[in-house]
Deep mutational scan, measured.
Amino acid sequence: GKELVLALYDYQEKSPREVTMKKGDILTLLNSTNKDWWKVEVNDRQGFVPAAYVKKLDP
């Protein structure tokens, strides 16, 4: 199944490769191989958020 992450903080995108999220958002995790930036999908948009700003949810 899909892996989900919880947004721990608000994040405002600073480049087109990033996405904005609000604290409490549930996002689909697409790629977590980079320790600093994780690729997520939110509202049909894909992009990166700081890994420290999200937490993996237990399945």
Rank of each mutant, 00 (worst) to 15 (best):
G1R: 10
G1T: 09
G1C: 11
G1S: 14
G1W: 05
G1V: 15
G1N: 15
G1Y: 15
G1I: 15
G1D: 15
G1A: 14
K2G: 07
K2Q: 08
K2F: 06
K2L: 05
K2P: 04
K2T: 10
K2C: 08
E3L: 07
E3S: 08
E3N: 11
E3D: 12
E3H: 09
E3W: 03
E3R: 09
E3G: 05
L4G: 04
L4P: 05
L4C: 03
L4F: 13
L4I: 13
V5K: 01
V5I: 07
V5E: 01
V5T: 03
V5W: 05
V5Y: 11
L6M: 13
L6R: 11
L6Q: 14
L6E: 15
L6W: 07
L6V: 14
L6T: 11
A7T: 04
A7M: 01
A7I: 00
A7C: 08
A7V: 07
A7H: 00
L8T: 10
L8F: 03
L8Y: 03
L8W: 02
Y9M: 13
Y9S: 14
Y9L: 13
D10N: 07
D10G: 05
D10P: 05
D10E: 05
D10V: 00
D10M: 00
D10A: 11
Y11G: 01
Y11C: 01
Y11P: 01
Y11F: 12
Y11R: 03
Y11Q: 02
Q12M: 14
Q12Y: 10
Q12E: 15
Q12R: 11
Q12K: 09
Q12N: 08
Q12S: 10
E13Q: 14
E13T: 09
E13K: 15
E13G: 11
E13Y: 04
E13C: 10
E13L: 06
K14L: 11
K14H: 15
K14E: 09
K14S: 14
K14F: 04
S15I: 05
S15K: 13
S15E: 11
S15Y: 07
S15F: 05
S15H: 13
P16G: 09
P16A: 12
P16Q: 14
P16T: 14
P16V: 07
P16R: 11
P16L: 09
R17P: 07
R17N: 14
R17H: 09
R17G: 12
R17C: 08
R17V: 09
R17M: 15
E18M: 03
E18V: 03
E18S: 05
E18H: 06
E18P: 05
V19Y: 03
V19L: 13
V19I: 15
T20P: 12
T20R: 08
T20Q: 05
T20K: 04
T20H: 03
M21Y: 01
M21L: 10
M21S: 01
M21R: 00
K22P: 00
K22F: 12
K22C: 14
K22I: 11
K22L: 11
K22G: 06
K22E: 14
K22Q: 15
K22H: 11
K23H: 08
K23R: 09
K23T: 10
K23S: 08
G24T: 01
G24D: 09
G24W: 03
G24H: 04
G24E: 01
G24N: 06
G24S: 03
G24R: 02
G24P: 01
G24Y: 02
D25E: 12
D25A: 11
D25T: 11
D25V: 05
D25P: 00
D25K: 03
D25Y: 03
I26V: 15
I26C: 13
I26K: 11
I26D: 02
I26R: 12
I26T: 14
I26Y: 12
L27R: 01
L27A: 08
L27D: 01
L27H: 03
L27P: 03
L27M: 14
T28L: 09
T28A: 13
T28N: 10
T28K: 11
T28R: 13
T28C: 11
T28E: 12
T28I: 07
T28S: 13
T28D: 08
L29C: 12
L29M: 04
L29I: 05
L29D: 01
L29R: 02
L29F: 03
L29W: 00
L29A: 04
L30A: 05
L30W: 06
L30P: 01
L30N: 04
L30C: 13
L30T: 08
N31G: 11
N31I: 05
N31M: 10
N31C: 13
N31L: 08
N31H: 14
N31Y: 04
N31E: 14
S32L: 04
S32H: 13
S32Q: 07
T33S: 10
T33A: 11
T33C: 09
T33K: 12
T33L: 07
T33I: 07
T33V: 06
T33H: 11
T33G: 10
T33Y: 06
N34D: 13
N34G: 15
N34W: 03
N34H: 15
N34V: 06
K35F: 07
K35S: 12
K35H: 13
K35Y: 09
K35C: 07
K35T: 10
D36F: 14
D36N: 14
D36Q: 12
D36M: 14
D36T: 13
D36A: 12
D36P: 02
D36Y: 11
D36G: 14
W37L: 05
W37P: 01
W37N: 03
W37A: 04
W37G: 02
W38G: 01
W38I: 05
W38P: 02
K39Q: 11
K39E: 15
K39H: 09
K39C: 13
K39Y: 09
V40H: 00
V40R: 00
V40P: 01
V40T: 02
V40L: 03
E41A: 13
E41M: 14
E41Y: 06
E41Q: 14
E41N: 06
E41C: 11
E41I: 10
E41W: 05
V42L: 14
V42S: 11
N43F: 06
N43S: 11
N43K: 10
N43G: 15
N43D: 10
N43A: 15
N43C: 07
N43H: 15
D44P: 02
D44T: 06
D44G: 13
D44Y: 06
D44N: 14
R45H: 09
R45Y: 05
R45S: 11
R45F: 05
R45T: 09
R45D: 04
R45W: 03
R45V: 13
Q46M: 10
Q46D: 08
Q46N: 10
Q46S: 14
Q46K: 10
Q46P: 09
Q46L: 08
Q46G: 08
G47P: 00
G47M: 05
G47L: 04
G47R: 02
G47D: 01
G47Y: 03
G47H: 02
F48M: 12
F48T: 03
F48C: 07
F48D: 07
F48G: 02
F48N: 06
F48L: 15
F48K: 05
F48I: 12
V49L: 02
V49F: 00
V49S: 02
P50D: 00
P50N: 01
P50V: 00
P50L: 00
A51F: 01
A51C: 05
A51N: 03
A51L: 00
A51D: 01
A52T: 14
A52I: 05
A52F: 14
A52L: 09
A52Q: 10
A52H: 07
A52P: 11
A52S: 14
A52W: 07
Y53S: 15
Y53I: 13
Y53N: 07
Y53W: 09
Y53D: 03
Y53T: 12
V54K: 00
V54T: 05
V54Y: 00
V54R: 00
V54G: 01
V54F: 04
V54S: 01
V54C: 10
V54E: 00
V54H: 00
K55T: 14
K55Y: 03
K55F: 03
K55R: 14
K56L: 11
K56D: 03
K56V: 11
K56T: 09
K56N: 06
K56R: 13
L57A: 08
L57E: 05
L57P: 05
D58P: 13
D58H: 13
D58W: 07
D58Q: 09
D58C: 05
D58T: 12
D58S: 13
P59M: 03
P59A: 09
P59L: 05
P59W: 04
P59E: 08
P59D: 04
